[in-house]
Simulated assay, not measured.
Amino acid sequence: MDSMRGQGGIQMLLTAEQEAQHIVSAARNLKITRLRQAKEEAEREVANYRSHLDAEYQNKISESSGSCGSTAKQLEEETEIKIKNLKETAAKVSPDVVGMLIKYVTTVKT
């Protein structure tokens, strides 16, 4: 009877070991599947982020190249205004400067 129990116990252990192997195998397969899904999701996120950054970069390039002409035009206008202001200021001060120069040239120090 002990030998029957021993064989039955061994058979139970073998069955339990097989069940454990199936559980471990299923868990391993599930882990591999999850890792593949995570990798694919990460690759999609990286691709989306890369395309987003590329789109931003292209927008900045198009904005800066498009605004070059307007920036140059704006600088020309500002320069013209500054030149005009300088000429007006010089015209206002010119008689005083001329008078001062004539005074110093014609005054004799003794």
Rank of each mutant, 00 (worst) to 15 (best):
K31V: 10
L35W: 02
S3K: 08
E45G: 00
E76H: 05
D54Y: 03
Q21A: 11
I83N: 08
L13T: 03
I83D: 05
K31Y: 06
D54M: 08
T15I: 04
S62T: 11
S62E: 11
E19S: 14
T89V: 09
H22A: 15
Y49V: 06
K39S: 15
K60F: 07
I61R: 08
E78T: 08
H52S: 13
M100I: 05
D2R: 07
R28P: 00
S70N: 10
D96P: 00
G6F: 02
L14C: 04
E17K: 11
A90R: 10
E56Y: 02
A91W: 00
R5G: 02
T110W: 04
K31G: 01
I32D: 10
V24H: 06
L35I: 14
S94D: 11
V97W: 02
T33E: 13
M12K: 11
R28D: 12
E19T: 12
R34H: 08
G6K: 05
Y57H: 09
L35K: 09
M100V: 04
Y104E: 14
T89H: 07
A91C: 01
Q21R: 15
K92L: 14
I61T: 07
T110G: 09
Q58E: 13
I23V: 14
A42K: 08
S51F: 01
I61S: 03
S64M: 12
V98C: 03
T15M: 06
K73S: 13
G9I: 05
C68Q: 14
E76S: 11
S25N: 07
K60Q: 12
Q37N: 09
R34P: 00
K87H: 10
A90S: 11
R36D: 12
A27Y: 01
T15K: 10
S70A: 13
A42N: 07
A55L: 05
E40R: 04
M100K: 08
V108E: 12
S65P: 01
E77C: 04
R5F: 03
V46E: 10
S62I: 06
T106W: 01
I102A: 07
R50H: 06
K73I: 03
Q37E: 15
V93K: 14
Y104F: 11
R5V: 05
M1W: 05
I81T: 12
N29K: 13
S64P: 00
G9K: 06
Q37H: 05
A55T: 08
Q7L: 13
M100H: 06
V97N: 04
E88Q: 10
R36F: 02
L13W: 02
I61F: 03
G66W: 03
E19I: 11
